[in-house]
Design a protein around this nucleic acid. Structure first.
Lengths: 110, 110
DNA sequence: TATCTTTATCGTAATATTGCAATATACAAT
DNA sequence: ATTGTATATTGCAATATTACGATAAAGATA
């Protein structure tokens, strides 16, 4: 016990949970903010933007990449990181469905 | 060390992270799915819907409530749980902002 | 080649999360 | 008052996450 019981839930539920979990840390939200603020891909500059050690930032970047929220490509010495629109699209779709369902429930709720 | 360095990030970043983290578990996604599927508030039926012990479900419900994604009101013997639209609205606003920013970056990216 | 820069990985400590049995609480109904 | 039902809390074990120093890997530059 202690480990999440992934196989008792649907793929969709696990998918959304994985994406949301990746977003569930302020450092990772900050990384995404930065990638969105600067109007291009970021090549080797992210560590200086965060109040965390290089190893920690690298770890957070890996988690964002694994979840599909960013993608990185090697560019000589540095690595260029980008928002991965696919991951965000999945979450956005989810919230659109949720919002549609909430509309329907209007006034039927406590 | 090991604890999240909350105070190094903005309130907004912490806010989004907290909400996303609450969504970051398949059981909690499943609870929200259920609340949205049934076209009303749920009074005392959630435990049976999930493949988890009652204590565990109660814990997940508390986390969703703390994050502001659901709300519960006591209804005699049972407790009625509802989607809390405010929490979802915050996340939806966030994703709308993100999507607007992504639009602007079109073709400027790797 | 030697060195610098950038990013990743390993090892490890501190903390948090997950899950459950047992128990407590709160109200219903008998 | 006692019993039954629904939910919460407590305590604990297993596992996961967070953070960082140290070190490795890979390309750039002198």
């Amino acid at each position: 016990m202690g480990a999440t019981k992934t196989d008792h839930f649907t793929d969709k539920q696990n998918d959304i949970a994985t994406l949301a979990k990746a977003l569930g840390h302020p450092a990772r939200v900050a990384i995404l903010d930065y990638l969105l603020r600067v109007d291009a891909c970021i090549c080797g500059d992210i560590v200086n933007e965060l109040p965390l050690a290089q190893a920690t930032v690298s770890q957070h970047l890996r988690e964002l990449k694994n979840a599909g929220l960013i993608k990185g490509s090697i560019e000589g010495n540095a690595i260029c990181y980008c928002i991965d629109e696919k991951g965000f699209a999945k979450l956005q779709t989810y919230f659109n469905v949720v919002s549609t369902k909430m509309e329907k429930k209007k006034n039927k709720c406590c």
